[in-house]
Computed example of a mutant assay.
Amino acid sequence: MKEEPQDFKKCRKVFHALSRPRTLKASVHQVKGSSAMMRFLRSTFLTSAVVLSLATPAAATDAASPEGAEGRGGAPDCVGFTADWRYTFVTNGCSSAYTVTVVYRDGTDVPCRVAFPGDMLTFPGYGTRGNEVLGAVLCETDGGV
């Protein structure tokens, strides 16, 4: 019977020791460090935003549009594309066949291919060097095969 109260007292001491708030010098340094880190991140973010805002108009003037690629017209809405770094898939959901190709930002030329209704054509992807697929375009001005 005497052991239970002693065990209870020990548990009580441990509980109170753990529940007391602790103030450590490291926590004060962490607060100061996080403030400095926030200033660094804020200035880095601001600098990046300014550089990107200045660079975006220049990049936009260099980019080609799918409609203006060598007099080719944009593909109809039923011709869609999905671009990946390795492959670009062009699907023809139309009821007629179209001769299509893919336009890249850097002007990469790929041959035209015929997409019959329901077809999925595979073209090269945009790669790992910052290129971009701008869209699928028709190769002939009349839009048919």
Rank of each mutant, 00 (worst) to 15 (best):
C112Q: 07
K32P: 10
A58K: 05
F15R: 14
G33S: 05
K13P: 00
T128P: 01
T44R: 13
S35N: 08
S43K: 15
G127Q: 04
V28I: 09
R42I: 05
G107N: 05
A36V: 14
V90T: 10
D84C: 06
H29T: 15
L41Y: 00
A69M: 07
M37A: 08
A64I: 10
L54M: 08
F116A: 14
G107K: 04
T122L: 00
Y104T: 00
L134A: 03
L54I: 06
R42C: 09
C94L: 00
T82G: 01
R20P: 02
T56G: 03
G143D: 05
S65C: 05
C94Q: 00
R129K: 13
G127L: 02
V102P: 00
F89Y: 09
K32S: 15
P111L: 12
L41N: 01
A60I: 09
G127F: 04
S48Q: 13
D84M: 07
F116M: 13
E70R: 11
E3K: 06
S53F: 06
P21C: 11
F81P: 06
G125A: 10
T56S: 12
T82A: 00
R113K: 15
H29N: 15
Y98W: 06
G80S: 15
T91V: 11
Y98Q: 09
H16Q: 13
M120G: 00
A59N: 08
V133Y: 02
L24Q: 10
R39V: 13
P117E: 01
G118E: 05
L54K: 03
R113S: 14
W85C: 04
C139F: 03
T128E: 04
C78S: 09
V90C: 02
A55N: 15
T47K: 12
T128I: 05
D109S: 14
G125F: 06
K32V: 15
G135A: 01
A49F: 08
H16D: 12
G73F: 04
D84H: 12
A55Y: 14
V114S: 07
G118F: 10
T56A: 13
V114C: 03
L54N: 00
R86E: 12
V51R: 04
K10A: 07
C112I: 10
V90K: 11
S34Q: 04
K10S: 08
A83D: 03
D7R: 15
K25V: 07
E67K: 10
G118S: 08
F45S: 13
V51T: 03
S19P: 01
D142W: 12
K9T: 11
S96T: 15
T88L: 01
R42S: 06
S65L: 06
S35T: 10
